[in-house]
Design a protein around this nucleic acid. Structure first.
Lengths: 184, 184
DNA sequence: TGTTACATGTAATACGTTACATGATTTT
DNA sequence: AAAATCATGTAACGTATTACATGTAACA
């Protein structure tokens, strides 16, 4: 149950409308938590009902009109509580590793291409994160507590992508070493 | 939609009952795909209805009796098809990174302890995987195609745990370096 | 006034989690 | 015969995904 907490965090950083949140979940927040606009609107409704957030007074409160939300004290309290609760890491559930195990049973035809495709995607993502690091966390911005922590989170995203590029490279070496580059 | 494919893979490797599958998902299959017995029984029912698997003829087909399943040709075809389909990696959704970002907003009190707890858990998991590697993939068993691929999958699990231990160590250095070991 | 971009939402379905229910077998 | 264990299953709920629906604002 983390999506409401992701939204509370985002709103504390900066009060936003549903669509603005959706965009932030596509960008910076997206490297550790993803969400679609449908999830976000539903959750905003629940959080408002629970008294954790409120819509800022708007001139024209109707459908199709922008609606900004801010966090209420109860919402901040809930988030603080969640951060301090002990919560175990969830077991891994990765489709690509599963597919490789399946390929070990039903045959690897064409799988090297899929590995190459994933490698390209992860390399692109890695480059994107490194650009974000350069722009958002230049050496002189690494002193303030909150900045250092946000940087640490981004480092996590970067190292995860680095893991994937390394593993995929290793996997492709295994494939190409035995089957040749075209997997013939 | 990967759970049915995880089950098909497991059943192709070895026909099993629901409980046996549950145990295998807690062990070897668990390092890339987790599932509970409730999910497994529900999915076995669907796979049987779809004609992808069948229950082996049993002497006493009643509740509380063991029921073994095997994969039918249609099931193998579906799995083969899934392995060959292109499927993009899912965006990351990691609660610990999210909680660290939240801690950057609401305060880090007690968070270093949680990081230490996670570090200990990931170290244990890493050791377990390394033991599995030693037992299941000794050097002389690394020649057969299927073995090499399964080993590659396990390497993925190992490298993922290594990533977590490295990142958590880095994060703790950040915390301890500024706040001291007891986060005072 | 037609089209595009902005903005919020609903509906249906699939997947995952937690708690509980029930029968069969083995052990004490 | 009671208790523990093995084995299969139901029910309820929460979360995530996909497709679709609707209204507003800008502008060509």
């Amino acid at each position: 149950m983390s999506l409401p907490h992701a939204i509370l965090t985002a709103l504390l950083e900066k009060p936003s409308s549903g669509l603005e949140l959706t965009r932030r979940f596509d960008r910076s927040i997206g490297y550790f938590w993803s969400a679609t606009h449908q999830q976000i609107y539903r959750e905003l409704g629940k959080l408002e009902q629970a008294g954790h957030i409120r819509a800022l007074p708007a001139p024209v409160p109707s459908r199709g009109q922008k609606k900004e939300y801010e966090v209420l004290p109860a919402g901040r309290a809930e988030l603080t509580d969640w951060v301090r609760r002990a919560e175990d890491p969830k077991p891994i559930r990765d489709a690509l590793l599963l597919r490789l195990r399946a390929a070990a049973v039903v045959g690897t035809e064409g799988f090297a291409d899929e590995l190459r495709r994933h490698l390209a995607l992860h390399r692109t993502q890695l480059d994107e994160y490194r650009d974000m690091e350069d722009r958002q966390f230049p050496p002189e911005r690494r002193t303030a507590e909150a900045d250092r922590l946000r940087h640490l989170v981004l480092r996590g995203g970067i190292e995860l992508e680095r893991f994937w590029t390394a593993w995929l490279t290793e996997a492709l070496a295994e494939f190409d070493g035995r089957d040749g580059p075209t997997n013939c």
